[in-house]
């Protein structure tokens, strides 16, 4: 825009008064610069938000006439939270777990501590779970959690320190281990499990390419949506296995108050987050293999998702604060059991 004006002025001077009139008219009518909105998200939502952003931009233009340019940034959920804390100017964050947004609230004070009660369903417009992705024909016969700790089984999962999906996968595995008889057996199970992990990627997408593209490992602990996407991208070389139980993964969304107030984007950002709960967005949610919340979308996609027993983070671990302190903080259980090969 700024570069266009001087050159136009030069043209005006050369064209003379007669030629100038239509040019002037066009300059005056030129569309205003689009308003940018930045959604900082976690790794596997790339495709989902590409569609949702296009749908929201169209909806918002129809409603208000404002033209939006919605920018995306993706990466491991913990890494993304860190970037926002360090000053990445996100208007909204749509991360893999509440703990990461809690960190933003605690360290950077960009939003109030009670952020999760500001939107319906604990601020999670969609849910997912952790499933197993295995190679075609399931050559290692992996059916359930006990099969993952057998000798010779390569388990691919990202690093729980940086990846939200990996934390859900870790907790799903731990919840299974705890059912064997409490903390001791759970610790044993987790130790054996991570002995079978040859490499920890930074994010969910990283782990998927390790498994699917570089052919490493026998089973990928994957977001359900990511597993379906892998089937779409890489064809029939893989199969999804639902374990006997898993965890209800709730990826929350939040408005960053201090950022939107500084950038004067609060109205748009609020509209954006509310839009995620609308029938239109919820249909896209189902289409991209996330489990929708809204009734019509739930009914439409019901057959696509297998119903298995899912523990919740609050029931099994007493919420993210406790889970983080016990498992993922420096020196906590994950640090104690994981020894890089």
């Amino acid at each position: 825009m700024t570069t266009a004006f001087p050159s136009r002025r030069v043209m005006l001077a050369g064209a003379g008064a007669l030629g100038a009139a239509p040019l002037l008219g066009r300059a005056a009518l030129a569309a205003p610069a689009p308003i940018t909105l930045l959604n900082v998200s976690y790794d596997p939502t790339r495709e989902l938000y590409k569609d949702i952003n296009a749908a929201f931009a169209a909806y918002w233009k129809g409603r208000t006439g404002q033209v939006l340019d919605i920018k995306q940034s993706h990466g491991g959920s913990g890494k993304q939270a860190r970037a926002v804390i360090d000053g990445l100017q996100a208007d909204v964050v749509t991360l893999a777990l509440a703990g990461d947004i809690d960190e933003i609230a605690a360290r950077a004070k960009l939003l109030p501590p009670n952020w999760q009660s500001r939107l319906p369903n604990n601020s999670t417009p969609y849910t997912s779970t952790i499933v197993f992705l295995v190679r075609k024909g399931n050559p290692k016969g992996i059916r359930d959690w006990p099969d993952l700790v057998k000798p010779g089984v390569g388990v691919i999962t990202p690093n729980p320190k940086t990846s939200g999906g990996a934390r859900w996968a870790y907790l799903a595995a731990y919840a299974y281990g705890a059912k064997l008889g409490g903390a001791g057996p759970a610790r044993d199970y987790m130790t054996k499990l991570f002995k079978n992990v040859p490499v920890l990627g930074a994010g969910a997408r990283d782990a998927t390419t390790t498994f699917a593209q570089r052919n490493l490992g026998d089973v990928l602990l994957s977001w359900e949506n990511e597993a379906f996407l892998t089937l779409e991208e890489f064809g029939p070389n893989f199969e999804i296995v639902y374990p006997g139980s898993s965890i209800l993964a709730e990826p929350p969304v939040a408005l960053l108050d201090r950022n939107v107030d500084r950038r004067k984007t609060r109205v748009i950002a609020t509209g954006y987050l509310n839009f995620l709960y609308s029938p239109l967005a919820q249909d896209l949610v189902g289409k991209h293999h996330y489990r929708p919340r809204e009734k019509a979308a739930v009914a439409k996609y019901a057959a696509a998702f297998k119903q298995i027993p899912l523990v919740t983070i609050d029931q099994a671990f007493g919420g993210w604060k406790k889970a983080t302190a016990a498992h993922f903080a420096d020196g906590a259980l994950f640090d104690q059991i994981y020894r890089p090969a």
Partner: peptide, 10 residues
């Protein structure tokens, strides 16, 4: 990579 923030197109 550390200072980028990975905003696409920006």
């Amino acid at each position: 990579s550390v200072v980028s923030g990975h905003i696409r197109g920006l």
